[in-house]
Design a protein around this nucleic acid. Structure first.
Length: 875
DNA sequence: TCGAACACGC
DNA sequence: GACGTACGTGTTCGAT
């Protein structure tokens, strides 16, 4: 235990939590989101700080001593929403269960209680942490007292000690009160000096130190208007100062010693968590395993595998491997669960058994697994061909709820109320401390996973059925998983010599540029460090500061481009960055993951990650190999066919998202444009700018393209303004004009948001869902984001569905021919193959046909294809 | 070990 | 009226 004291501003945190989280309620309709958020934060504090003393202070009642000074104090505040009010008593109940003291004092606010106790603690030199969402509390920071302010959500905390306050706000702790006295605070209805905002207030305090000094030397204040304002509102300023000052001598009847924290009774907490449906917090309660009575299990260790233990019906098969990367990981063991029993099968027993292998390869023997692709690829590396899997729980979990971040069996189980298996991290540890426990513990763990799998099967298949997602699951994701497994296992051939040549060339050029940069900067420094680079550019060379990040100067490419003409060092830095990126991420990164024996790369496609239904690719990411700039594009010359007589063949959908949009929105003009085979960006420019085709200038087309891009990716007017380098207003106008030109699109956008509000989710043409709880949030940002997501996801997600279906169609048709081709990669709207030179034309015809006709939309789908001796040449 | 900043693709 | 804005993966730096 640490001997730290934790003081929490209960009102502030509960408010924050309420607005930060969607309005959850438990089964009986009581709202619990704020209590959930607060409790989550408390558990985190208890876990991380392990404090000796802890107190949650609340405001008491409506009026306080401050109202005697100023009866409008906190006037004009929105009334506390009833959904929040009802959570205060629940929160107190929760605190009692957690054994955490809470306190309130009539006529005083939580701040004052905290201020008074922290003063005692400070005098006694005791480490104290204060948590609040209210910046005012910063005035309490000292050498012993740290103030933690909630950020964004509420479990993310920014901790402030006096130095950081100085750094971030430009003033000292002692000046926090005077800052507020000058600038006021709208939310508390503290007037301050009208016309003085944060900037001016900081400037004044930096010049004069204190409010009192400002007024003593008011003649020295620069600016006639400012001086007048200060003088005219002196009274308000000093009253504001009084209001903003936390009372550190409140008549409280508790002492630090009364706040000692002795832990909680797990049973009470779990009871309460159950009542309010806080399932996801359950695992963080000490001893919750016993308390929720995780069922006892029995199982048998298989010494010799025979087919009698296989059931003719469902078999739940678990394969365990510690490594994420199943291309290189080692098998640790198997578990089999079915209606006959629970079995642990050691790896050597399994792999040395012909019965086991023939069972795995028997397509008529039904198996349910978690992550079929992982299992399939791992077994392929052992020469075993997995078949007969008719349900993948991980894929099903992703379809049912794409937003959850962990689709592993114990987590999925928790979500459906099956607390049978421990999390891997609990059994194996994590990071450097990861290890495999003794066989007894290990085998029970994986058998438990099998039992969870068995329990989950029905829940998930029911859910897919009731959501009408069975086709999406059985006809799309399941078959796709097998195709991806083959792609990953076969790998992509890499020309290692070529990469090494590039590496050599690049490192020489980088050395040279590095020297030139040092020369121009008149010093050597780490160019890769934004911090050091920022100092050199903006302090030593005195270049104008365009943008700041929260830690210092921004040195991002768009900032540097604006400085191009200021100093010749800039273009060198941009080039250094560009080449450095190629060197480290692409050349060295790829060389690191090439298999030495055959010079192949085996990526992994994550099929259960993105919220839209797209795939992602890791270790390495082969979906972001450079193409835009020639220099980077050359990397693609290192991707070659695995056989001498073959070429790389690439087929990509032209404008698939915009075509999908035309279809979904049923917009006449957009549909017509695609039917007539128009260049869509030129057409958009014509419609938006009201000009003829021959009047479309390149800038107009560029703008139109950016708007189309924005529509597809769901960016805002701000995002568009950034990408075009124009103002937000202008960007807003473009979007407005776009909607006028395409009323069908506008109607769709309005409709889909309404639909999302009504249903709580949006869906793609193949019924893939994305749930959008924030669509009704009172937080403008969250709501806006959810609205843009509602508009964008059906477009991007349907496009993802289409190419996935195309992959299945292509492979099905390909398997019925003699075409010698392998599908290698999918990059969102394109498919990359390697194909025997003699079969190129056949493949092109087949692929183009399959891709263009995989679905029937109101607009044609167009596929463009090309091939060459390397990926670079297939453009 | 982790977050921030940056850069690559779609 | 301010908020702070597409999604992924990977690298490097620098604080912990």
């Amino acid at each position: 235990m640490s001997d730290e004291i934790i003081l929490i501003d209960g009102n502030s945190v509960l408010y924050r939590a309420f607005f930060a989280l969607p309005l959850l309620s438990n089964d009986s309709g009581v709202h619990t989101n704020a209590v959930f958020g607060f409790t989550n934060m408390l558990l985190k504090i208890l876990e991380e700080k392990d404090p000796s003393h802890i107190l949650v202070a609340f405001d008491a009642g409506k009026t306080t001593f401050r109202h005697e000074t100023y009866k409008e104090y906190k006037g004009g505040r929105q009334k506390t929403p009833p959904e929040l009010s009802e959570q205060f008593p629940i929160m107190r109940e929760m605190l009692d269960a957690l054994g955490i003291k809470h306190y309130e004092l009539p006529q005083y606010e939580a701040d004052d209680i905290i201020g008074t106790i922290s003063k005692q603690a400070d005098q006694d030199h005791k480490r104290t942490f204060i948590y609040s969402g209210d910046k005012d509390l910063l005035q309490l920071a000292s050498d012993y007292v740290t103030v933690g302010l909630t950020r964004k959500g509420i479990t993310e905390i920014d901790e402030y000690v006096p130095d950081q306050i100085k750094e971030k706000m430009g003033i000292t702790t002692d000046q926090v009160i005077d800052l507020k006295a000058l600038m006021g605070d709208k939310s508390d209805n503290i007037p301050g000096v009208p016309g003085v905002g944060e900037k001016t207030a900081v400037k004044l305090l930096n010049q004069f130190g204190t409010l009192e000094n400002v007024y003593e030397n008011v003649d020295e204040v620069s600016g006639k208007k400012l001086k007048e304002k200060l003088i005219n509102h002196k009274e308000e300023a000093f009253m504001s100062q009084q209001l903003a000052t936390i009372n550190r001598k409140s008549p409280i009847d508790i002492k630090v010693n009364d706040l000692s924290y002795e832990g909680y009774q797990s049973r009470d907490v779990i009871e309460l968590f159950k009542t309010y449906g806080f399932k996801s917090l359950m695992g963080r309660i000490e001893g919750s395993d016993e308390a929720v009575e995780r069922e006892e299990i029995t199982f048998e260790k298989v010494e010799t595998f025979t087919k009698d233990i296989v059931s003719p019906e469902g078999n739940y098969l678990i394969m365990e491997m510690l490594e994420d990367n199943y291309h290189i990981g080692g098998l640790l063991g198997f578990a089999l669960v079915n209606n006959q029993g629970h079995y642990y099968i050691p790896t050597d027993v399994a792999l040395n058994s012909n019965d086991f292998i023939s069972w795995i390869e028997d397509e008529n023997s039904h198996k349910v697994v978690a992550d079929v692709k992982r299992l399939k690829v791992a077994l392929k590396w052992k020469g075993i061909n997995l078949q007969g899997v008719d349900f993948d729980l991980v894929l099903a979990s992703y379809i049912a709820n794409p937003s959850i971040s962990y689709h592993d069996l114990p987590s999925i189980g928790q979500g459906y109320g099956f607390n049978v298996a421990s999390y891997d991290e609990e059994v194996y540890g994590k990071g450097a401390k990861q290890s495999i426990p003794e066989e007894e513990v290990f085998s029970e763990h994986i058998v438990r996973k099998g039992i969870v799998a068995q329990k989950l099967h029905h829940s998930l298949s029911d859910e897919l059925k009731s959501n009408e997602q069975e086709d999406l699951f059985y006809q799309l994701e399941m078959p796709l998983s097998h195709i991806l497994a083959d792609m990953e296992y076969k790998g992509v051939q890499v020309d290692v010599d070529r990469l090494e040549d590039m590496q050599q060339d690049l490192s020489e050029r980088l050395d040279k540029i590095e020297e030139e940069i040092y020369e121009l900067a008149d010093q050597s420094f780490n160019i890769n460090s934004p911090k050091q680079l920022g100092k050199v550019l903006f302090e030593d060379l005195g270049l104008p500061v365009i943008k700041k990040t929260k830690t210092g100067y921004s040195t991002s490419a768009d900032v540097l481009e604006k400085l191009q003409h200021e100093h010749e060092i800039i273009e060198k830095i941009l080039l250094y960055r560009q080449l450095g990126k190629l060197q480290s991420t692409y050349i060295e990164g790829l060389l690191k993951v090439v298999h030495d024996d055959n010079h192949k790369i085996h990526t992994r496609f994550n099929q259960v990650l993105t919220q839209t239904g797209r795939l992602s690719s890791i270790d390495p990411n082969l979906q972001n190999i450079p193409i835009r700039l020639e220099e980077g594009r050359k990397i693609r010359q290192a991707f070659i066919p695995s056989k001498e007589d073959s070429v790389i063949f690439a087929a990509d959908y032209s404008q698939i998202e915009l075509r999908v949009l035309a279809h979904i929105a049923n917009d006449e003009k957009l549909i017509a444009a695609f039917k007539e085979g128009k260049d869509i960006h030129t057409q958009t420019a014509m419609d938006v700018f009201n000009v003829n085709e021959d009047e479309v200038e390149s800038l107009m087309r560029r703008h139109a393209k950016a708007v189309n891009f924005g529509i597809v990716y769901g960016i805002s007017d701000y995002g568009l303004s950034q990408s075009l380098g124009i103002t937000r207003k202008e960007a807003g106008k473009f979007i407005e004009k776009y909607f006028e030109s395409y009323p069908g699109v506008k109607a769709y956008m309005d409709d889909i948001v309404q639909q999302a509000k009504r249903d709580g989710f949006v869906e793609t043409i193949m019924n893939r869902r994305r749930y959008l709880p924030d669509i009704t949030s009172r937080n403008f940002n969250k709501r806006s984001f959810a609205e843009r997501t509602a508009m964008n996801t059906p477009i991007q997600g349907s496009a993802a569905d289409i190419i996935k279906k195309a992959m299945i169609d292509v492979m099905e048709q390909l398997n019925q021919t003699d075409i010698r081709a392998n599908l290698l990669l999918q990059v969102h709207d394109e498919l990359i193959f390697e194909v025997n030179k003699e079969d190129i034309e056949q493949l092109e015809a087949l692929v183009k046909d399959a891709m263009e006709n995989t679905v029937d939309l109101d607009v044609p789908l167009l596929v463009e294809a090309d091939y060459g001796t390397t990926w670079y040449d297939a453009k």
